[in-house]
C-alpha cells in the first residue's frame, strides 16, 4: 500500500484502537492514522461537516470501522459512505467484536471490503491485524476527489 494512504480508525474503545495501532505498526504499516471516537465524528470528517478536521481532496483513505459506537453506529456510517458516489470507492474494513453471521452478511451486502471479528484470544487478534496489514498491502486505494463543494 502506498504510504500516502491515510488510515481512518473509527472505534469508540480507546483500548481497541491502541491494540490495532500497535499491531499495524508491528506488521510494518507506517501510514498516517487518524482516530475517531464515534460514528458522528467520522461522518463529519468524511462529509466535511463540523469544526473538526475534514477530509482533503486528492488524498487516498481507508476506513477501519467498528459497528457498535455511540450516536451513529458503524452500519449507518457504512450505509452513508456507500450511498455517496465518491466515497463509495473508499475501502471500508469492519473491525468489530460482533461475529453474528447476519451482521457480517449485512455488512458485505452493503459493500464493505473486508470484515474482521476482534477475537478475545490475542494471538488470533494479532493474526487478524497481520492479515489486515497484508490486505492493506495489496488493496488498491483510489484517491477521492469529489470536490463538488470545494
Amino acid at each position: 500500500m502506498h504510504k500516502d494512504v491515510v488510515i481512518l480508525v473509527a472505534e469508540d474503545d480507546e483500548g481497541h484502537a491502541g491494540l490495532i495501532k500497535r499491531n499495524l505498526s508491528r506488521a510494518g504499516v507506517v501510514n498516517e492514522l487518524l482516530d475517531f471516537k464515534n460514528g458522528q465524528e467520522i461522518l463529519d470528517f468524511l462529509f466535511r461537516r463540523g469544526d473538526g478536521p475534514v477530509r482533503q481532496s486528492g488524498k487516498a483513505y481507508i476506513l477501519l470501522l467498528d459497528i457498535r459506537m455511540p450516536k451513529v453506529d458503524g452500519i449507518q456510517v457504512l450505509e452513508q459512505v456507500k450511498a455517496d458516489p465518491e466515497l463509495r470507492k473508499m475501502p471500508v474494513v469492519m473491525i468489530t467484536t460482533t461475529d453474528d453471521p447476519r451482521e457480517v452478511q449485512h455488512c458485505h451486502a452493503l459493500g464493505c471490503s473486508n470484515y474482521i471479528a476482534k477475537p478475545i484470544d490475542y494471538e488470533k487478534f494479532v493474526n487478524a491485524i497481520r492479515q489486515l496489514g497484508l490486505f492493506l498491502a495489496v488493496v488498491q486505494v483510489p484517491t477521492i476527489n469529489g470536490d463538488r463543494n470545494p
Binding site: D13, I120, Y122
Partner: peptide, 14 residues
Amino acid sequence: LRSPLVNIDGYSRE
C-alpha cells in the same frame, strides 16, 4: 462484555 475482554487479553499479552 466482549469489548473489555479483548482489551484485558490484548494488553496483558502486550
